[in-house]
Each structure stands twice: as structure tokens, then as C-alpha cells.
Write a protein that binds this DNA or RNA. Structure first.
Lengths: 353, 353
DNA sequence: GTTTCGAATGAAACCGGTTTCTCAATCACT
DNA sequence: AGTGATTGAGAAACCGGTTTCATTCGAAAC
């Protein structure tokens, strides 16, 4: 008659002729167990391929080493987000925790709790913290506050009327400085007429515009940006911006795009008009997403350290949990990646060939 | 004096003047609770923002609605994998479960269990199933078998000496048929000399080659493929293949690349030599990864339904759990996406301009 | 040789739910 | 009105660990 498989500490205890308390001590590497007892217990565990029940452990421990990466209103197939996730997962791998990956979609005026909410948020004890990535609205943050669960927000894509980055529980990168840097780079190549192309209704693009504007100084007039709103995709926005650029700012010699996808659209628009990059016009993107890696010409862009953002978010979450108090926001720098889409200014201007 | 926050069913029971059993019944929508009792309990729950302890629930339930998406030896920043993850997450959202996302790196001869193994695998009860994505080796599968945990494998990227797809517990897509289809498409455009470029040491690329070969029929000689192995990246492989192609198969008018990244490298190689696509030569990729979306010319390719694969894997896992027996593998079809990188054959051949 | 202390171990309480069993109250039907 | 079936609700066991507390035992201290 086959013996019942060993599943619990009780089974181990019985087999080894000790109490469950001792088995538990062995499991948790408690020092007060004699070497020979420990060895015997371990032996039984090994031979029965015993794996402790995680739920029972957590029930008594009162917590979990598990956080939730919640991607709001965005798709993880977009490398920007999956790379943040990667940083998060790296950190948890590092400290021995887990990440539950979930997504949610909601509007700016959604009410919470609601049915769109993943179950994991509704229960207590599933997770010890929340990492809010993607695009978020204040209505959801208000709800998360009420949950009394530690959380860290990806600060750049919070939709508010303000330009400042969120002050607490958040990790952001310095969008203004990145755009400033890119603009200075173009200036130093000799460009005077630099046009920003983007959707200024979005705070994150607006911040990039601000960086651009301060770098431009007196050269920037309110009209020096091409501001297209409510476009279905950034690529489309870029494409549509090109005819406007040619019409309104024909003397432009360099473009700073709100992001890489927009730059791709602009590139496409240029190609249709026979405008060559970088010979006729220079262009700088923003984000350094994976999707541009095979582009020709290779796009000069402002690299956002996505993995680092993820890692920092996870790290800040841990610190928040320990400190039990809201910590200062972390702001991460960007890096200008110079590739082939920019050239020195050589007395030319946008023109249809 | 402030009352202690309500945290448990006992608190609710006391506040509502009922027993915990009743509270539990309300929580689980058990029918045998009178309307007014139920309402009173719900009222207390609402006002105290009660959220049940998930660990306690799972302890008694003996399981979890949580599976683990384990990405082996690959990076989630690659859209191929993040889109499979997306399909998985969609499914779990649909059925109300969770996905823990983890990665692991190991060699073909790794021994298990080992320290690289995520904690989640070592404990029992954390997850109710395993979704094995990325590139896997038999050594790991053997270990997972011993775990007695339901699992589903992404079948295409299992490293074996064989060409067949795994027979059980797996979801795959039909690589052979996809390559066959692409090759027929090129033939119908009038191309006779079609060259396959790839690394034939990898079973998954080998399968694509097989599809190509059968479609070519008698036209395919053993030399009709450019087989480059041990390249650090597929892009580099593609780039290096171009000079070989020009040297060995100068009469080639169309290329089937092992995957999209390789196609990008080939495209780059062509550009360096002044060979125009599709005017001088046609090219078809494979996978339809997100990274090619901004390419010019837009790449014709074999689309692999990544989200669908993820969804099917998750679904199969559920069925496996219920049925308690290994199910037949699922094989998913591909779709040829015709874009701009192929043209009708017009009596030309590869030549340096 | 007794006292004292720390190490090793077991018994039992506990974590926060679910579920079975039991029983009282209500309802349907003859 | 009497009987059996059904419904509503509580007491207690249970899920599988961890932890506190008490106890035993041997070694060191006096």
C-alpha cells in the first residue's frame, strides 16, 4: 500500500519523529536546532520533495513579498513600458520577491472601486505594494490612497493640468532637462531655426516643449512649435506636421520631435516630400524606444533610462514600506544618444525639391 | 478613543451582530443568507472598507487563481515576448486571475533545482500553473515535470535536435506553413531564385527553412540557403549574409529571411551596396514584430499571432488543470502580411550598382 | 554538590478565512 | 393541527504553516 505523499510539515514531523515546531525551525533556518536533527529533517524534506505552502506562510507572516505592476491605459507591447517592467522584475529578482503584472483601462473621470479593477486590488494580502505605470489620472490615485497600500507612481505620465512632476511616492525622469539638452545640441551644430513638433495638451510633451523653449531663449516665439492635438497616434501626428512645417516655418533646419514615434512620422513625411535627413534637415527624437532600432537614418534621440526607472520604482516601494512614510520623489536624468539624423547646419532650408 | 480599524471577518461579525460564518457566506455570495442580514453585513463592509485577506482565503481554498509567466533566456523588451505576455494577461483578466511575471536564465545543461530558480517555483501554493515562454531546454522541462505543477510550454522555441514541435502541454504556431506560404507568395510574383537566409542550427529557423524548401520543390538545392551560425544577433547575421548572397547567389531575386530582425540586417546590407528593395530584390521577413513598424520600405512578413499564442497558452493551462491530463498540443496558423518590400520579378538580378 | 543558565524541543495558540454539522424557525401540504 | 422539507444562522473544525511559552537536559559557575 502506497504511503500518502508528504505534503505538510506535519507529515515531515511524523516521518522524522519530531514536532512541527522543529520542522518549521529547520525551514526558517532558526539556529536553535541541533545539527543532527536538522540534517534528518532536511533529509526527509529532500527525499519527499517537500515544498512548503506559501499561502500558509504568508497568512501568519501577515504579508507577501509580492508587488503588483499595474500598467494603466497603455499596452505592454510598447517597449517603453515593457522595459520599465523589466527593471521592476530585475529588482524583485534581486531581493527575492515577485511581480504580478496587470493592466487596467479607465477614463479620467472614472469612479473607484469599479468592475474594471483587477481582483488583486480588491483583496488584501495579495500584494504588499503597487507600482503604477502607464498613464494615470488623479481619480485613480485618490482611490489608491484610500487603499492604504504602499505605492509608487511613474510620475511623468500623470495627467494633471500642471507642469510639475508629482511630489511624493513617485519616480520620474527629467523631461525638461532632456529636451533642453537636445536643443542645445542642435544649436551647437549651428542650427538657429529649430522647431518643436508635438501635442502641447499633454503635460509630458509640454514639459519637453518647456525644455526646448528655455534652451531656445529669445529665439522661441509662441509660434515656433507645431502643436497638433487629438491625433490618434504619434506617428500620424508626425506625418501631418510635415506639410504644416513646410508651410509655416520653411526656414526650419532642425526639428525636435515630442517623441520617437512622432519622429518616425516626421521622417516619413519628409521622405514623401523628398526632404533628406540629415542633409536637408536634422531631427532629434525622444525616449529612445526599441522600435527605432532599425530605422534609417538612425535616429538621434534623448534616451530615457526605462529599466532604471523600473528598478528605482521598485526600490522606492521597498523603502516606503520600511519607512512607512512618503519619500521624496526621485528624478532620473536622461542621456542624449547621437546617431545619424543630425548634421551641421549648412545654409539650407526646408524646401520641396 | 478611536476604534480599532476593522480588518477581519471577526470584526465585521461583531459589528453586525452575526457570526463569522454568516460574514463568510455574504463574502462568497452564498444563497442562504436573508436579504436583510446580507445587506447589514455588506453595509458594515462598505463603511469599513473591508478587504478580505487573500492568503487566508487561499490557504483554505487550497489553491490560487494565479499563474506564473516564466520567460526563459529572453528579454521581455523584445516585443515578441511581451506580446505573448499580453495575451496571457488578457486571458487572466478575462477569467479573473493573476499573472506573476518572472524571468530566468539558464544553460542547456543546467541542473535543477538551483539558485537561479525564482522563489515562486520553490514554494507550493504560490501559483496554480506555469506558462513557459522564451527559449527553453529539456533539462528545465524535466525539472518542471517533477514539480507536479500544471504547465504549458511555448512550443516553438524548445531546443531539441528534432524538427517536430513538442507533443504535449504546449502551444505552437505553424512555422513550416508560414514559410511555405511566404515562399509560394514570392513564386507567384514570378521569382524563381529565392534564397533563404538564416541559422539552420536552431530548430525554429530550421522549420522555417523546411517550409521554404518544400515550397521550392526541385528548385531548392542544399546550397540555396545561406546558413550562418553563432552570430551574436540576428541583425548582424542579416548584415553579414548580404556579401555572401551577392557572391554565391548573384541571380537571387527574392530573399526569405529567418525572421524580421535578420531582414532588417539584410536591408541594411543591401542599402550599403546600393541594392534597392523592392526594385532590385524582394524580401520577406518572419514574425511581424513591433520593431519593424517604422521601417522603410515596410516589410512584408509572416505574422505570428503572439497575443493569440499567449491567450491559448493560458486557456490550455486552465483546461489542463481541470482535466488533470495532458492535452493535445495546439498549433496556431500564421498570416502573410503583404507590405512594400516585395515586387514582381522583372528580369533583374542582384548586382552591385 | 547544588545552582544557574542556555540550548534543544514540544504543546498549543494563532493567522483569517471557509465549510461542515447542527439546530431552530419557517413554510408547504395533507 | 401535524408532519416533513427548506431556509437561516451559529459553533467549531480545519487549512498549513509560525511563534510563544513551558519544559527538559546538560554544561558551566559557585
Amino acid at each position: 500500500m502506497k504511503k500518502r505523499a508528504i505534503r505538510t510539515v506535519y507529515d515531515i514531523a511524523e516521518a522524522a519523529g519530531v514536532s512541527v515546531a522543529t520542522v518549521s525551525r529547520v525551514l526558517n533556518k532558526h539556529p536553535n536546532v541541533s545539527a543532527k536533527t536538522r540534517e534528518r529533517v532536511l533529509e526527509f524534506m529532500r527525499e519527499s520533495e517537500f515544498r512548503p505552502n506559501a499561502n500558509a506562510r504568508r497568512l501568519v507572516a501577515g504579508g507577501t513579498e509580492q508587488a503588483c505592476f499595474l500598467l494603466s491605459n497603455r499596452h505592454v507591447a510598447h517597449s517603453f513600458h515593457s522595459r520599465i517592467l523589466m527593471g521592476v522584475e530585475d529588482y524583485f529578482q534581486h531581493v527575492g520577491g515577485h511581480v504580478v503584472f496587470t493592466t487596467i483601462e479607465y477614463g479620467p473621470d472614472a469612479e473607484f472601486p469599479n468592475d474594471a479593477l483587477p481582483r488583486i486590488i480588491r483583496q488584501r494580502g495579495d500584494i504588499n505594494g503597487l507600482l503604477l505605470a502607464g498613464v494615470n489620472h488623479p481619480c485613480f490615485l485618490k482611490y489608491v490612497d484610500r487603499l492604504h497600500i504602499p505605492y509608487v507612481l511613474f510620475g511623468n505620465n500623470l495627467v494633471t493640468g500642471l507642469l510639475e512632476l508629482p511630489k511624493k511616492n513617485s519616480v520620474s525622469f527629467d523631461e525638461v532637462a532632456g529636451a533642453h539638452h537636445a536643443t542645445v545640441f542642435l544649436s551647437e551644430l549651428g542650427h538657429r531655426r529649430i522647431t518643436f513638433i508635438g501635442d502641447l495638451s499633454k503635460p509630458w510633451y509640454r514639459r519637453r516643449y518647456e525644455g526646448y523653449r528655455t534652451a531656445m531663449g529669445t529665439r522661441a516665439s509662441p509660434e515656433s512649435a507645431i502643436d497638433i492635438r487629438n491625433e490618434e497616434s504619434a506617428f500620424e501626428l508626425g506625418r501631418k506636421a510635415v506639410p504644416l512645417l513646410v508651410a509655416k516655418h520653411p526656414d526650419t533646419t532642425a526639428v525636435l520631435a515630442q517623441d520617437d514615434e512622432t519622429a518616425c512620422g516626421i521622417l516619413d513625411g519628409f521622405r514623401r516630400l523628398g526632404i533628406r535627413v540629415p542633409q536637408d534637415i536634422s531631427i532629434v527624437g525622444y525616449d529612445d524606444i526599441t522600435e527605432i532600432q532599425y530605422l534609417h537614418p538612425a535616429l538621434t534621440t534623448v534616451r530615457v533610462p526605462k529599466e532604471k526607472i523600473g528598478w528605482s520604482m521598485a526600490e522606492l516601494l521597498s523603502r516606503t514600506r520600511e519607512g512607512r512614510h512618503a519619500l521624496m520623489p526621485e528624478v532620473i536624468g536622461t542621456e542624449l544618444i547621437v546617431r545619424d539624423s543630425c548634421a551641421k547646419f549648412m545654409v539650407k532650408s526646408v524646401s520641396v525639391k
